[in-house]
């Protein structure tokens, strides 16, 4: 798979928020490639920059957030285009949003306007990117509704989002995202707002549709269980930096970075001893204005090495063949004189 051309390649992406109190470095030099038909997982705690990365790719960052550096290269029929250079509100970028790269947002609850019918909004998406009349667009929307398993699609299309259950709403969102046959789907915590049973159904549906439509997915979540089920390749983020990345099996079975190890230890397992407290990661996520020096994880790290971890940000380097980690434990950095 690695020999194919990546569909999307992000190089050294930096996003900053220019606040009155100072500058917040939300994404600090993130790079990754997403290949056709791949499910690429980004995992991390809230505030680690995973949602900001997603918004940067779509160029829908809200002020005061801005891409300050980096490239977002989208491969389109053999030629590449740098999204970071496009005008966020320009026609070219708008033609890519929704058509080439579509979004499944976090809150299906409020991601539909409450005073417009679900159908109205889906038909709008279809007509924005496909030269069809209203009636034909409605037919496409109906088909999409059937594809994502919404019962009585004809009737549901004319209902408002608040008349649908959480699961149906998320299915409608998926129908909208897929309606223009995007080559890349960004799913931003698509299952956090719905209950566990529905969550499993939605994930299965996404998997099935991804195979049918040959879409690549960037799957963003804080839920390691969901990542294990969905992703092929995983990137672990912390405070805007990539801590570790690799194929899903390697990350889950042989985590290298102390942060990934700590995350995995804190998942309840059927094999663990009953009546024993789950291990947690000590401390809490630092305030964005008060980033620790050196490796951002060092104040909470069980394997902290004084004089090293707090001095330098270790670069992401290959560890044990398939995966890469950003940690001095694996590649010592020289302390400058």
């Amino acid at each position: 798979m690695n020999h194919a051309t990546p569909l999307l390649s992000v190089h050294n992406l930096q996003v900053q928020f220019f606040m009155d109190e100072g500058i917040v470095q939300a994404v600090d030099g993130v790079s990754f490639d997403v290949f056709p038909r791949q499910v690429f997982g980004i995992v991390g705690e809230s505030g680690c920059g995973k949602s900001v990365t997603m918004k940067a790719i779509l160029q829908i960052l809200e002020p005061p957030g801005r891409i300050v550096k980096g490239e977002i290269l989208l491969n389109r029929n053999g030629s590449t285009i740098d999204l970071a250079k496009l005008n966020p509100n320009g026609k070219e970028m708008r033609d890519i949003r929704g058509a080439q790269i579509a979004l499944i947002p976090q809150e299906p609850m409020s991601s539909f306007s409450p005073v417009h019918t679900v159908g109205d909004q889906i038909i709008e998406a279809i007509r924005l990117h496909q030269p069809v009349h209203a009636r034909a667009a409605r037919q496409i929307a109906l088909e999409m509704f059937r594809d994502v398993g919404i019962p009585m699609p004809e009737q549901r299309l004319d209902e408002y989002a608040w008349q649908l259950s959480g699961g149906l709403r998320q299915r409608a969102m998926i129908a909208m995202a897929l309606s223009c046959h995007p080559r890349l789907l960004i799913a931003d915590e698509p299952t956090t707002a719905i209950d566990v049973t529905t969550q499993a159904q939605i994930l299965r549906l996404l998997r099935k549709l991804q195979e049918e439509h040959h879409t690549a997915i960037i799957f963003i979540t804080h839920d390691l269980g969901v990542i294990a089920q969905m992703a092929d390749y995983v990137q672990v983020m912390y405070l805007g930096l990539v801590m570790e990345e690799g194929p899903v099996d390697a990350i889950f079975h042989a985590p290298k970075h102390p942060y990934t190890q700590a995350l995995l230890r804190s998942i309840p397992s059927v094999h663990s001893t009953p009546r024993v407290n789950l291990p947690t990661i000590s401390g809490s996520i630092p305030h964005p204005f008060n980033r620790p020096s050196g490796c951002p994880f060092h104040p909470r790290c069980p394997q902290f090495i004084a004089g090293k971890c707090d001095k330098h940000i270790p670069p992401l380097r290959s560890v044990g063949g398939v995966q890469a980690a950003a940690c001095v434990l694996y590649h010592d950095v020289e302390v400058p004189r």
């Binding site: 779509l58 829908i60 809200e62 509100n89 708008r94 033609d95 890519i96 949003r97 929704g98 058509a99 579509a102 979004l103 947002p105 976090q106 809150e107 609850m109 409020s110 991601s111 539909f112 306007s113 409450p114 909004q121 709008e124 998406a125 924005l128 990117h129 969102m173 909208m176």
Partner: peptide
Amino acid sequence: LNKPYVVAARARGLSE
């Protein structure tokens, strides 16, 4: 203006 339905509409390529 910052409600999720605005973000969703922007993400499907609607002009501002």
